[in-house]
Design a protein around this nucleic acid. Structure first.
Length: 581
RNA sequence: CCGGGAUUAGCUCAGCUGGAUAGAGUAGUUGGCUUCGAACCAAUUGGUCGGGAGUUCGAAUCUCUCAUCCCGGGCCA
């Protein structure tokens, strides 16, 4: 699906391919060579390396000898290759960054570089992420899913995929009943005027605690009756509790929308658990009639033991469906409604077994797309003293992280501008920087690793962080404003810091490819950090304004290219760079 | 019991799917703002890649095994 989009690597691969044919009389495709390129251990060893282990095996020679042969052979190297050197089993290339910059920097500054064709024959793909429950509070744990999912959407779209983004909130179930139960029978206070969604979450926790407390007491039986009545009305879509559900559900949706708007996340489709519920039961019955699903101990499900997945239950003995039932109906709708060929689910790792069962069941039901279903699992966000649970109430509400961070940014950094900037700009900048810190912080850790959330640590913004990269953009922005337009267009690369910048800039699309194919935005955060750091180093060592022409203009063009690349990269993480900060 | 994941510097993490001398941040030490923005830069200390065995030219990366932690395994989601 991904094609060889890097023009420099492609040209070089072609030249190597020709040279191999000439020297070893065998074909070694340029695609293969392209994929084998790797970094050199140090700048002294060159800028790109080609390992010869595989070729040597095919040519029945030893890698070091093959490297020597190729290095010494007469060849038609691309113009940007300055020197070719064999180093043991490697063929190392030294680049002429002046030549590379001549084509690369104008492409970046015009934006053309970011519109290159990356992929072909990409499957139409749906990415589902953010599955919060209504009637519960949104906490920092939800943010990890949101940032990961949104970034994947952006990466895939940049790479040329046709993507449908979707969310699947849980608006039915016992958690809803518990919340309404507490509201109706035990809550004594007023209903607040604003932030009702978050308040509703606290009722859920209170309800849970009370039910827990009264377990084993005479009250327990009465509680159960009340909960059953609530659930029944919700199922029948009528009655007092159904009306209350509609009203309170909207409060939660308002909270979700607030968060999505804050995070600049949009979904093409919203699926609701309440919408697929009854159809999912029908679907299960249909496949029971067809004979695919079987009955066992009064339940209906599918035996997946030959795939080592156990029994996947789809209808309980009371005839109700389960989570898996809904996910199967949901998948059917996704395949049918949007004709998607591939489906990605961003859901925490607890659901691994669940999704294995669902995907296998879909396959046995005859859905071709089941083979292209992928569960991107991530580990939890925990607190230093253990897992977060809205049931117990030991959570860090998302709003409290945002509020703390915005306050800290204003206090520590933006207070110095309080006489220069408007109140609105200070607020907006603090929000933008806070988003940068939170989104970068959530995506920089590999999904397979858990995040232990410590508020004090999150409020430290030095070192590798979103604001570090945002700061570089603000710096460049401010400098370019002062210096004005360049007086000439030639880029001259002199200092090693400038070479480093060009070397990094040419790898931007490569970093995006890595992040996309491996479903790992952290590959992009690492790249962004490297580029930002290289620019800070350049900034400290290479004066721009005080330099004489044509160096001054060249450095303006280079700085502009870095700024454009950083902004494009940050955008793929859903992060904006403020004009100044 | 079975299955999945994690384990890399004091702490938080990278390590490009098997390649060259294992890298960053942070903490510690030291130097740099009258000079394009110090939310910065430069230098330096710090590692038996959880332990052991194996596979091969070559292992943090693959296999086996042990240890510790986390998460799953039909009437919750």
């Amino acid at each position: 699906m991904f094609i060889n989009h890097d023009q420099f690597r492609s040209e070089l691969a072609s030249a190597i391919s020709e040279l191999i044919t000439k020297n070893f009389s065998l074909t070694f495709s340029k695609e293969k060579i392209y994929s084998l390129f790797g970094p050199t251990p140090s700048k002294e060893a060159g800028d790109l390396s080609f390992p010869l282990f595989i070729l040597a095996k095919e040519a029945k020679t030893n890698p070091a000898l093959a490297a020597k042969t190729l290095a010494e052979s007469e060849a038609n190297w691309p113009a940007f290759v300055e020197k070719v050197q064999n180093a043991g089993p490697y063929l190392n290339f030294y680049f002429d960054f002046n030549k590379i910059a001549q084509t690369l920097i104008p492409e970046i500054n015009s934006g053309e570089f970011f519109k290159k064709k990356f992929t072909e024959n990409t499957p139409k793909t749906m990415i589902e992420f953010s599955q919060p429950n209504t009637h519960k509070e949104l906490h920092v744990g939800h943010m990890r899913n949101l940032c990961l999912g949104d970034s994947l959407i952006r990466l895939h779209r940049y790479s040329g995929f046709d993507i449908v983004s979707t969310t699947f909130p849980g608006d039915v179930g016992t958690h809803v009943a518990k919340c309404l139960w507490y509201l109706k029978f035990h809550y004594k206070g007023e209903i607040p005027k604003e932030r009702k969604g978050a308040w509703l979450g606290t009722l859920y926790t209170a309800g849970n605690n009370l039910l827990e407390e009264q377990r084993g007491t005479p009250q327990e039986e009465k509680n159960r009756e009340q909960l059953t009545l609530i659930l029944k009305q919700l199922e029948q879509k009528s009655g007092e509790y159904y009306e209350l559900w509609k009203e309170t559900r909207q409060w939660s949706i308002d909270l979700m929308n607030e968060v999505y708007q804050w995070a600049d996340v949009k979904f093409d489709v919203w699926y609701w658990e309440s919408e697929v519920d009854s159809d999912s039961v029908k679907l299960a019955k249909e496949y029971y009639d067809k004979g695919l699903f079987i009955e066992d101990k009064g339940c209906i499900g599918i035996d997946l033991s030959e795939y080592k997945l156990g029994f996947c239950m789809l209808l309980k003995s009371d005839g109700n469906g389960l989570y898996a039932t809904k996910d199967i109906e949901l998948a059917r709708r996704k395949f049918q409604d949007f004709k998607i060929e591939k489906s990605i689910y961003v859901v925490d790792k607890r659901q691994e077994h669940h999704f294995k069962q669902v995907f296998k069941t879909l396959e046995l039901m005859g859905f071709e797309q089941a083979k292209n279903c992928y569960h991107l699992q991530y580990d939890f966000v925990e607190l230093p003293d253990g897992a977060m649970s809205s049931r117990k109430g030991n959570i860090v509400p998302l709003q409290s992280l945002i509020d703390n961070m915005v306050a800290m940014i204003k206090d520590q950094y933006l207070s110095r501008y309080q006489n220069e900037w408007s109140v609105e700009e200070i607020e907006e900048t603090a929000q933008t920087v806070a988003k940068g810190a939170i989104k970068y912080g959530m995506t920089r850790i590999d999904p397979s690793k858990k995040i232990v959330f410590d508020m004090q640590e999150w409020l430290k913004l030095d070192g590798e962080s979103g604001p570090y990269a945002q700061y570089v953009c603000a710096r460049i922005n401010s400098m370019l404003k002062k210096l004005g337009e360049p007086t000439q267009q030639e880029v001259k690369i002199i200092e090693k810091q400038e070479k480093e910048l060009v070397a990094l800039l040419m790898n931007f699309n490569h970093a995006v490819e890595q992040a996309t194919t491996n479903y790992r935005p952290s590959a992009l955060t690492a790249y962004i950090y490297d580029l930002a750091r290289a620019y800070n180093s350049f900034y400290a060592e290479c004066p721009v304004g005080p330099a004489s022409e044509p160096v001054k203009s060249s450095r303006i063009l280079l700085s502009n290219a870095v700024s454009k690349t950083l902004k494009t990269g940050l955008e793929l993480l859903g992060i904006k760079a403020p004009e100044r900060m």
